[in-house]
Nucleic acid binder design. Structure first.
Length: 491
RNA sequence: CGGGAUGUAGCGAAGUUGGUAUCGCACCUGCUUUGGGAGCAGGGGAUCGCUGGUUCGAGUCCAGUCAUCCCGACCA
């Protein structure tokens, strides 16, 4: 076990906190509920962002940037939207400070600088964007409008946790406008599949694709699609959402277009987003009591090379050989780092890179130079052995693929083992206590959903897409049901 | 916002009936080390969250205040 790292078994929440800070991903700032994302954590986020950005562009989207501030009157235009976010908004009321005459050296808000209309720090950007779109859309020829924004948003949450829920967080939000309902729904679903593709194939985290129940829906949406992942402690995490907004925002902001017949119609909308919360999902899906375990496709460093030497002469000889290995790996696009620092000993470096989740580690010393071999250690399985320097780059390339697949396979196996199909209330409670996804019948009413939540703290994570239809009885009321839905306790 | 707890060096902690602050990690210097978080020796670093009060004297007692964490309700 890594030094000073709480084990998962002892205290999963503490393990997560320890890991995020000790692996140097992020730390609490001195600002309430806000974190500092440190360079190593930010490097992982940058990799995520870059991959997603390519995927968005490959599906026809372009990036733009909208204001941080939303005038209050914009936010209140879409009623459901306003209600949903009103309780967690940071509000700017003044624009100036001045020296406090009663407290030398202190500043105070200048009461004369009160804003005529308050500005809301965006909790999400539908309002400001749809207000802008009114000026951009006149004709069916202006559609579809496929725009994404990388931004920070603020939601004044009561309680925060690094990456999973912070007052300010980074995300992307796509906001698209379409001429037909069918096309907007198609877009909503397309982006859900993009998210699922990313989370499964890059992060190595299996997800359930589904739709939210009415009570879990995004404020202002007609339908919310989501991907749901399962963490190692058996709790679910919503990893991304894609919303079909209908004509709600077009009507609220009066965005109409002339169709081919010259008649005015309201525009159809979607919005979709993933956030730095994905960092939390990444950590909680694969990591162990020795530290972080990163999937090769997102790891800032995929292979680290640690030299082992006694003399300067040995160190120089190793560096010479390592330069060749580095070159061969770099030619294959593998992100490699040679840690030739003389300020830390090899054992220290081994532990450090393990904690940081670097997928592969090469150890190379005098006896390896002699035998034309290296020591190769895998982070995911914690196994190591000696391999020949001949064909090393090929071997490593294959291993990185294997590790990527292995992480997904392990996560999927865990999820399968933690997926329970139950038919009675007792079975339902027993399954929830074991943790995981619980597939159970529900009578389809919000009242029942609410009662189950109050009794068990479990929520309906989603109704899976292409959900098998099957007659059954609601676990709480016994009323007729046509399908199972996915329950879980969630983050 | 309700319930509970905690603020002492960069981090984690100790500090007795009130007497001017201690330990571990980290940091700096030197030597020996280097194939799983090195050893020894020496060294630097704290107006004890903040404000006020009691006292000859406050980390310690009292009052106020701010902040953070945990458990709830809310949530990407």
């Amino acid at each position: 076990m890594a030094k000073d790292l709480t084990t998962r078994e002892k205290d999963y929440a503490q393990w997560y906190q320890d890991l995020v800070t000790k692996a140097d991903l992020a730390e609490h700032s001195d600002v309430r509920g806000c974190m500092v994302i440190k360079p190593y954590g930010y490097a992982i986020w940058e990799n995520m962002r870059d991959v997603l950005d390519r995927m968005f562009k490959a599906t026809g989207h372009v990036n733009a940037y909208f204001p941080l501030f939303v005038p209050k009157s914009f936010l209140e235009k879409e009623e459901g939207h306003a209600e949903g976010f009103a309780k967690e908004c940071a509000v700017v009321t003044h624009y100036r400070l001045k020296n406090d005459p009663d407290n030398p050296g202190k500043l105070m808000v200048d009461p004369e600088s009160k804003l005529e209309e308050e500005l809301i720090v965006r909790p999400t950007s539908e309002a400001i964007i749809w207000n802008t779109y009114r000026g951009w859309i006149q004709s069916y020829r202006d559609l579809p409008l496929l725009i994404n924004q990388w931004a920070n948003v603020v939601r004044w949450e009561m309680r925060t946790r690094l990456f999973l829920r912070t007052t300010e967080f980074l995300w992307q939000e796509g906001h698209t406008a379409h001429s037909t309902k069918a096309e907007a729904i198609e877009e909503t679903e397309r982006m859900l599949h993009v998210y699922a593709d990313f989370v499964e194939n890059y992060m190595g985290v299996p997800v359930i694709k589904g739709i939210k129940t009415a009570s879990e829906r995004f404020a202002g949406a007609e339908e919310t699609y989501c991907i749901e992942a399962l963490m190692q402690d058996g709790k679910a995490l919503q990893a991304g959402t894609s919303h079909f907004l209908g004509q709600n925002f077009a009507k609220a902001f009066d965005v109409q277009f002339a169709n081919k017949e010259g008649k005015l119609e309201y525009v159809w909308a979607t919005s979709w987003g993933v956030s730095t919360r994905l960092m939390g999902a990444l950590v909680m899906s694969h990591s162990d009591d020795n530290g972080l375990v990163l999937p090769p496709r997102l790891a800032p460093t995929q292979v680290v090379i640690v030299p082992i030497y006694r003399t300067d002469e040995e160190r120089a000889r190793i560096a010479e050989r390592v330069a060749e290995i580095e070159k061969e790996l770099a030619m294959r696009g593998i992100r490699v780092k040679f840690d030739n620092r003389d300020t830390h000993r090899p054992g220290w470096k081994f532990a450090e890179y393990e904690l940081r989740g670097v997928p592969l580690r090469i150890g190379i010393g005098p006896k390896d130079l002699e035998a034309n071999q290296v020591e190769l250690a895998r982070r995911d399985t914690l196994t190591k052995g000696t391999v020949s320097q001949i064909g090393l780059a090929d071997h490593i390339e294959k291993l990185l693929h294997e590790i990527q697949h292995n992480l997904f396979a392990q996560a999927e196996a865990r999820r399968t083992a933690s997926s329970h199909y139950v038919n009675t209330w007792d079975e339902f409670n027993a399954a929830l206590d074991k943790g995981g996804f619980v597939y159970a019948h529900w009578d389809g009413t919000a009242e029942t959903e609410q009662k189950i939540k109050e009794k068990t703290k479990a929520t309906i994570r989603c109704i899976p897409l292409n959900n098998p239809q099957e007659a059954g009885q609601c676990i709480l009321t016994g009323n007729a049901s046509v399908q199972r839905v996915v329950f879980a306790r969630a983050y």
